[in-house]
Simulated scan of single mutants.
Amino acid sequence: MAAKTIGIPSLVRSVARAFVVSHPLHITSNLSYHSRLGYLPLTAPTSSGLCHLTQAIKRDVDVLLKGVGDKNTIEEVKHILEMAGRASSRREILHTNFLTPPVLKESLLAVEKLADVKAVAQGGYPQAERCRISVGVPDVFSSDPDILAALSITGNFGYQPCSHGDFLGAILGTGIAREKVGDIILQGEKGAQIIIVPELVDFLISSLDKVGNVSVSCEKIPLIALDYEPPRTKSFRTVEASLRVDALASAGFKVSRSKLVDLIRQYLLFTLF
């Protein structure tokens, strides 16, 4: 029977090798791995073989999840790791929805441990808090995937200013799920700019007509037209007995460590990278 080449992520190569040895599949005499892609020459696996391989991938994901620091993010990180496994085996690029900063951080840390998977995070501008992650085999990426769109929401907000929550509430009120919406950049009296998944641009333009009591219009704009304020930074020197986040943040923000501990426990203060 002719052998069939099947791509297997490097994360499960050792498990796959053990499986092949212990099962009577027809294997070519020169069993080897192609160094970059991690291919293993096998005959088409039986349903039992696929079951064993699926279980092996699940075990490896479970191992990576043990290293997740923020336990509240485990389910979402697990979903992204499984997505990365599918992207690697199919040699394609898959994309997440918009992620919160804690999930983004933990997911990137976990995915980077996969040898055959590249992860790219995009939020529309450098300081974006909510980002989407694209995962796939490194040589499949030719450039950053086109997975973001920007809209300008304008209206007469001079007499009735609207907050971030007002804009978000109006957008979600059209039926769009929160994970489909990225950052909202307030523009004062002019309105706001938002990042959104491209497939919902036309829907939001036709559906959103009010924010609060202010009539609005929506227009698609290029990402390069986003008007955001660069972060303000201040440099200083300090000597601390520990590199703990609460110690460093206390020195930087001039806030007591006890107050910062509460913020850290609520995941309102954390390091991104």
Score class of each variant (00 low, 15 high):
251 A>H: 08
162 C>F: 08
232 R>S: 07
149 A>V: 01
233 T>Y: 12
39 Y>P: 01
24 P>D: 00
177 A>L: 11
185 I>N: 07
223 L>Y: 04
17 R>L: 04
217 S>V: 06
168 L>F: 13
16 A>Q: 12
143 S>N: 05
272 L>M: 07
32 S>T: 15
73 T>C: 09
142 S>Q: 11
151 L>A: 14
197 V>R: 10
156 N>K: 13
44 A>Q: 11
122 Q>T: 09
249 A>I: 00
244 R>Q: 14
53 L>W: 06
179 E>W: 12
50 L>K: 10
194 I>F: 13
260 L>N: 07
167 F>W: 12
177 A>F: 09
20 V>M: 06
24 P>W: 00
179 E>S: 09
71 K>A: 02
230 P>S: 07
75 E>M: 10
156 N>R: 09
230 P>G: 09
33 Y>N: 14
192 A>R: 02
82 E>H: 13
144 D>K: 14
6 I>H: 08
145 P>R: 11
146 D>H: 08
218 C>W: 01
227 D>Y: 07
100 T>I: 00
229 E>I: 15
199 E>F: 05
258 S>N: 06
269 L>E: 01
103 V>K: 05
243 L>S: 13
47 S>V: 12
246 D>L: 13
150 A>N: 02
129 E>R: 07
218 C>M: 13
12 V>K: 05
271 T>Q: 03
224 I>E: 06
40 L>F: 10
38 G>S: 03
250 S>Y: 02
36 R>L: 14
104 L>W: 09
64 L>A: 05
190 K>F: 14
182 G>W: 07
269 L>A: 06
166 D>S: 13
104 L>R: 12
115 A>D: 02
231 P>I: 13
13 R>Y: 10
1 M>F: 09
252 G>V: 04
264 I>Q: 15
165 G>T: 13
265 R>H: 14
80 I>Y: 11
83 M>N: 01
176 I>R: 07
20 V>T: 13
136 G>C: 10
269 L>Y: 00
4 K>E: 07
59 R>I: 15
223 L>M: 01
207 S>M: 10
236 F>Q: 11
61 V>L: 09
104 L>G: 03
126 P>H: 15
24 P>C: 03
157 F>P: 00
240 E>D: 04
122 Q>W: 04
113 K>H: 00
18 A>I: 12
202 D>S: 10
23 H>R: 06
154 T>G: 12
225 A>N: 11
16 A>K: 02
153 I>N: 02
108 L>W: 01
